[in-house]
């Protein structure tokens, strides 16, 4: 699915050179749920931008879904982002003037999908995240958790090869965060490949594999034997509430 070899990224800010990635090689297989962890400045955000084709490596190779993306033009990269990648951001990044449905339709708009099909696919995606009765609401009429679910629906709608989630629970309270992780785990069970950046161990514990970054290098790569099941957490917390 994703194969990165000796990836390096150097930023030039004025006269200072910042080596954000200093030779990273990762292989992510289909249907993996990978959490990327590390302190700020470790290169994990840079890695996400590069995986998401928003930026280019200084050197190294990147193969996404059997396509070598290093030689692609800007337009081809835009097409790849549209077709292969679904983004979920910490701050949701929905367009405030549009309804949930219109927001979810947006990737299909750039894919050239006809309006009728666009609408039905967007509705299906919203159903998948349990928001079928909030489709005509604007982001300011929805809670943070609901907004993040709209964003996940938007990431899903183009049936991407991989979902990239950058601190998707960072702006949410812990319970809503668990709800979001529940959705991710459901998607993972259905066969979606997910890469998730977080600095919270509890969140990362939901993934099936964790990558640790430090100073632009991959310093740890471990398989999670028994990932936390968000569904159980939710069920037990409901029980706790009902116990009281």
């Amino acid at each position: 699915m994703i194969r990165i070899n000796e990836a390096r990224k150097t930023y030039h800010t004025g006269t200072v050179e910042v080596k954000a990635l200093r030779g990273v090689s990762v292989h992510i297989r289909p249907n993996e749920f990978v959490a990327v962890m590390g302190p700020s400045g470790s290169g994990k955000s840079t890695l996400m931008n590069l995986l998401g084709l928003l930026d280019r490596f200084s050197s190294g190779t990147y193969v996404l879904d059997n396509v070598g993306v290093s030689e692609l033009s800007d337009n081809e990269l835009a097409g790849m982002r549209n077709q292969k990648i679904g983004f979920v951001f910490q701050t949701f990044n929905l367009l405030p003037k549009m309804t949930a449905l219109k927001n979810v339709e947006l990737p299909l708009l750039y894919a050239g999908v006809k309006p009728v099909e666009r609408k039905s696919r967007a509705m299906t995606a919203l159903q998948q995240v349990g928001l079928e009765d909030r489709m005509c609401h604007h982001p300011n009429e929805l809670s943070g958790g609901q907004n993040q679910r709209v964003a996940i629906a938007r990431a899903l709608v183009n049936d991407p090869a991989i979902i990239l989630a950058d601190e998707p629970t960072g702006a949410l309270d812990s319970r809503t965060g668990v709800e979001i992780m529940h959705i991710f785990q459901e998607l993972h069970r259905k066969g979606v490949t997910i890469v998730l950046v977080t600095h919270e161990q509890e969140i990362a514990a939901h993934a099936s594999r964790i990558l640790y970054f430090r100073d632009g290098l991959l310093v740890g790569d471990e398989i999670v034997e028994n990932p936390v099941d968000a569904g159980q957490t939710l069920a037990s917390s409901v029980k706790e509430v009902s116990d009281i």
């Binding site: 800007d74 337009n75 835009a78 982002r81 549209n82 929905l94 750039y110 894919a111």
Partner: peptide
């Protein structure tokens, strides 16, 4: 600017 960034992330080409 942010809207433009979002649209680009979702697959808008510069031409779009």
């Amino acid at each position: 600017t942010r809207e433009i960034g979002i649209r680009m992330a979702l697959g808008a080409r510069r031409k779009d």
